Simulated assay, not measured.
Amino acid sequence: MGELERGVLIDVHGESFNTWKHADLIEGLLLHEKIGIATTKHSIGSTIVDLMGSVGEQTLLKLMDQQLLEFVIDDSVYRLSGIDRNGMKIGIPLLVGDPELGNEEKDVEQVIHEKVDPHLRSTISKYVDNHSQEVSVGNLQSGFYIGTIVNDLNNRVLFTLFIKKKNPRFELAQLPIYQVYQDGGGNLYVEVESVGQDVQQVFYSLLHLFTLDCLRAVCFTYVSTRTNATCLVGNRSTQDLLESKFIEMNVVNKQLARIIALDNLPDMATMVLNGYIDVDKAISLRKKSAPLRDFISNLDTVDPREMSSLYVDAIQDHGTTLDNKLLKRARFIVPTTVGLMEPASGVALGIVDYSLGCILENNQASVRLKDLIRIPVQNG
């Protein structure tokens, strides 16, 4: 079983290791004891190949040799069953495969062997076998997650933020009045006011994509509760959705979290783009950045200025300074409301890039959150 104490869980489902994921990986090496890679049973092989292509074969082997990676593998297969675009039927959101899919059941080792080069198969398979946690979503109550998705779909604020990301050219003034509801068979339908056919089709397509993102967000949140990771980082879609939920929850409940401000922290994405840092350098800085990881686990006693200084000192070369364009403002979120958040008292949920003010004003930002609500599971 995997172990992510004082670790970060990064969702890579449906996403390549681009600059942003590369930055997440580097920041994880500096701020956390271990990095969890959240993927699915069907895509674990592709995930490893993609990771190797991003960091290089030797660097991946180095990460494994130092046991810095943990794989969290769920068995989800995303599908909307019974779609009817003309009837505005979204279908039934499914997290697991069913006989209609015709998926051949394969174990993790088989999937890895199909994707990874022969000279590495044995090494990587053995590592994943010893450093992974498999999570089944089969015991997640469908009634709960479908109800959650219906609520998210009917949340106009969340949907509007999603549209801004997915289709900036869509005129939000054209967003019709709509209502998503569930029938007795679990099917989701949308009732929409009279609008032009073109607008209706674009609206339906966006709602369809949003439903799939909501489905992954529910799954990823559930998977995170099965690890003891300190910090959770979604993919570009789940991240946006979790961020938007945090915005809303924090507006409704001002005591949701205590925010610790940190100025002038290194902006890893910009540094990666500029070639200032890579994964190899981050690994070499692990010893020097150890005090940062102590700070992350004891935020109640942190002096923000001291931590900012430690962070900058840990990554800059001797005798050099970081240009302002390589710095950012960040916020650490510490839970305060029992029942909404359940990690141990004083454990940080993650980093909020840029300013809290921008987040609450619904501007672009990136929020890293631990699970916000307890998700019920079936007994047994």
Score class of each variant (00 low, 15 high):
residue 96 V to L: 11
residue 277 I to A: 02
residue 302 V to G: 05
residue 302 V to A: 13
residue 22 H to F: 03
residue 68 L to P: 00
residue 173 A to T: 14
residue 48 I to D: 04
residue 31 L to K: 04
residue 13 H to Y: 04
residue 316 Q to E: 06
residue 309 S to Q: 13
residue 121 R to G: 15
residue 334 V to H: 07
residue 1 M to W: 06
residue 354 Y to H: 10
residue 6 R to H: 14
residue 20 W to E: 06
residue 375 I to N: 04
residue 252 V to A: 11
residue 159 F to A: 06
residue 150 V to W: 02
residue 217 A to G: 05
residue 294 D to H: 09
residue 348 A to W: 01
residue 228 N to Q: 15
residue 132 S to Y: 07
residue 301 T to G: 13
residue 166 K to F: 14
residue 129 D to P: 01
residue 121 R to Q: 15
residue 256 L to Y: 06
residue 46 S to A: 14
residue 82 G to F: 01
residue 253 N to A: 06
residue 104 E to V: 01
residue 44 I to C: 11
residue 155 N to V: 15
residue 199 V to Q: 08
residue 250 N to A: 13
residue 185 G to K: 14
residue 326 L to N: 11
residue 199 V to F: 11
residue 155 N to A: 12
residue 266 P to G: 05
residue 196 G to D: 11
residue 303 D to A: 12
residue 156 R to C: 14
residue 246 F to M: 12
residue 83 I to R: 01
residue 364 Q to I: 14
residue 243 E to W: 09
residue 336 T to Q: 13
residue 189 Y to W: 09
residue 338 V to A: 08
residue 179 Q to Y: 13
residue 353 D to Q: 05
residue 223 V to C: 10
residue 349 L to D: 02
residue 27 E to V: 12
residue 161 L to H: 06
residue 118 P to W: 08
residue 89 K to N: 09
residue 85 R to G: 03
residue 252 V to Q: 14
residue 207 L to M: 03
residue 114 E to A: 02
residue 334 V to W: 04
residue 184 G to A: 14
residue 310 L to K: 01
residue 51 L to Q: 00
residue 101 L to F: 06
residue 228 N to F: 06
residue 141 Q to N: 12
residue 168 P to S: 03
residue 151 N to C: 13
residue 10 I to W: 03
residue 39 T to R: 07
residue 13 H to L: 10
residue 17 F to C: 07
residue 163 I to F: 08
residue 339 G to K: 00
residue 238 T to R: 10
residue 159 F to I: 13
residue 223 V to T: 09
residue 216 R to M: 09
residue 98 D to C: 09
residue 168 P to R: 03
residue 119 H to C: 02
residue 247 I to E: 00
residue 291 P to Y: 03
residue 84 D to H: 00
residue 27 E to I: 08
residue 264 N to W: 04
residue 89 K to W: 07
residue 4 L to P: 08
residue 61 L to H: 04
residue 165 K to E: 11
residue 26 I to V: 15
residue 128 V to M: 08
residue 162 F to Y: 13
residue 40 T to H: 05
residue 326 L to M: 13
residue 169 R to G: 04
residue 324 N to V: 00
residue 160 T to D: 13
residue 62 K to R: 12
residue 171 E to C: 07
residue 31 L to F: 14
residue 247 I to P: 01
residue 223 V to W: 10
residue 189 Y to K: 01
residue 195 V to S: 04
residue 245 K to R: 15
residue 111 V to N: 02
residue 374 R to M: 12
residue 235 N to Q: 08
residue 369 L to W: 02
residue 118 P to S: 05
